[in-house]
Amino acid sequence: MELSRRDALAALAAGGVTVGATAALDGNPFDGGDEPAPDRPSPEERLDALVAVADVVYPAEVSGVEEFVRRYALGRVEDREGYRDGIVDALDTLDEYARTWHDADFRALDAETRESVLDQMAVDDADPDPDGSDRERVRYYAVNELLYALYTSPTGGELVGIENPQGHPGGATSYRRGPGE
């Protein structure tokens, strides 16, 4: 199932960001601010890292992930410096672990190794916490951030069988329809 621009807008709405239907949502969420230091990842590399996490935590049958994640992250961090810093910090943390164990940034690892990094960090059973330990912040700002985006979007809901998931303002008629109606 393909994640569309509409899904990104819907997921943003679930997070308190109202974006006009005609909004451009162009650009990179990690752009802006100061010129990154030479030893720091560029905005493109950061976006790649977030997409790399999505590749692990999203089910194989969704497509259009890169565009979805880019648009979603763009809307999420607009005018929210603190939130952007939270995501950036979680991605940097992932890179640190990836470099320690595999000598490469997270985004440069193959799919299996990325998953193993998250497993080794025990992010799967970490309690999400924006102010917590490394694994708790990675769970909050990277893994859960992306899962929230997916499963409050119509396409994410449909994957499970609920086209109007909680958090998505999908109207007051879907609850009346029977299966397949």
């Binding site: 692990v56 089910p59 998953e115 799967d124 499963y151 809901g157 069988g161 909680q166």
Partner: peptide, 26 residues
């Protein structure tokens, strides 16, 4: 369960998570 809440509180992701959500919802 509400699928999004289950997804965020679980200890799985990817295809395993989707399978569990399909199993628990409906």
């Amino acid at each position: 369960p509400s699928p999004v809440e289950t997804a965020l509180a679980g200890d799985e992701w990817g295809d395993d998570l989707l399978d569990s959500l399909r199993e628990s919802y409906g």
